[in-house]
Amino acid sequence: MIEFIRGKIDYVSPEYIVVENNQIGYLMYTPNPFVFRKNEKEIVTIYTYQHVREDILALYGFKTREERALFVKLLNVSGIGPKGGLAILASGQPQQVVSAIENEDEKFLVKFPGVGKKTARQMILDLKGKLQDMISPTDIDLFSDDYEAEIKPSNTSSALEEAIEALKVLGFAEREINKVVPQLMSEVMTTDQYIKKALQKLLK
């Protein structure tokens, strides 16, 4: 298994990033690719998980080992695949996910795309008591200012469009997204900031 790849962020899309290392571009699916936008053309370290099935060979990338560990734990839950695991990590802070599982907060868990009551209950049954030491207070908060980037007003419309596409990739229905878009249009933000703001509203 590849523990990590250290290389230059070459490309960022709504679904994945491409990291160049030794003239090879590694395509990695990540929880929220746009958090890497400010690191484009910079050298970064991405912790990886290689998912292998008969019909798929995919590489998943994470900012921390803890985030990756939580992703792997989620894959062990019946009803959650790689896409669902990424959506959960992108939609909420890892600390919030762990807290919801430990506190048996099904109401919070069912807000994630693709997670119904049955899957939420399964997450609690399979993972409660196994995650306490996984996420530390110093871990990166996807809704914190750590990812704030310089705002370019001229790109506002395209940034919002990219954010909407990213939310669709995460599994949110168009009707859900349409409810929060009007609240976002009044603000000037980067794509990542739009995504974070939308997720905060969608998970209330």
Rank of each mutant, 00 (worst) to 15 (best):
G61D: 12
G85S: 02
D133Q: 14
L59Y: 09
K73F: 10
Q122E: 15
V98W: 02
D105I: 05
P94M: 09
L125Y: 11
L74N: 03
E106F: 03
G81D: 02
V72Q: 05
Q96K: 03
L57C: 06
E54T: 00
F62S: 03
A69K: 07
S136A: 08
L59S: 07
L127R: 08
D55L: 00
R121I: 15
G129R: 14
S136I: 00
Q122S: 14
A58Q: 03
N103G: 13
E67S: 00
R121P: 13
G116C: 09
L89E: 10
K130S: 11
V110K: 05
N76E: 12
Q93A: 05
S136H: 13
K118H: 04
E102G: 07
R68L: 04
D133M: 05
K83L: 10
E102C: 02
M123I: 14
M134A: 12
L74S: 00
V97E: 11
L86Q: 11
L59P: 10
R121M: 14
V97L: 12
K63T: 11
K130Q: 12
L127Y: 10
K107V: 12
I101V: 07
D133K: 14
D126I: 14
A100Q: 14
Q122G: 13
G84Q: 14
E104N: 11
L70N: 04
G84W: 13
N76T: 07
K111F: 12
G114V: 03
E54P: 02
E102V: 07
K117M: 15
L57S: 09
I56L: 08
I56D: 11
K73M: 05
K117P: 11
P113H: 01
V110N: 02
E54M: 00
Q95H: 03
K118Q: 08
G114T: 04
V115F: 02
E102R: 08
L57F: 07
L59F: 11
K73H: 12
E102T: 01
L86F: 10
K107H: 12
A100T: 13
N103Q: 15
G92S: 13
A120K: 02
A90E: 02
D105A: 04
E66I: 00
D133P: 14
K128S: 06
V115A: 05
T64K: 09
A87M: 04
P82C: 05
M123F: 15
I101G: 13
L131E: 10
Q96C: 00
F71L: 07
G84V: 13
S78T: 01
L125N: 03
F108Y: 07
Q93P: 01
G129D: 13
A69M: 06
F112D: 00
K117L: 15
I124Y: 06
D126P: 12
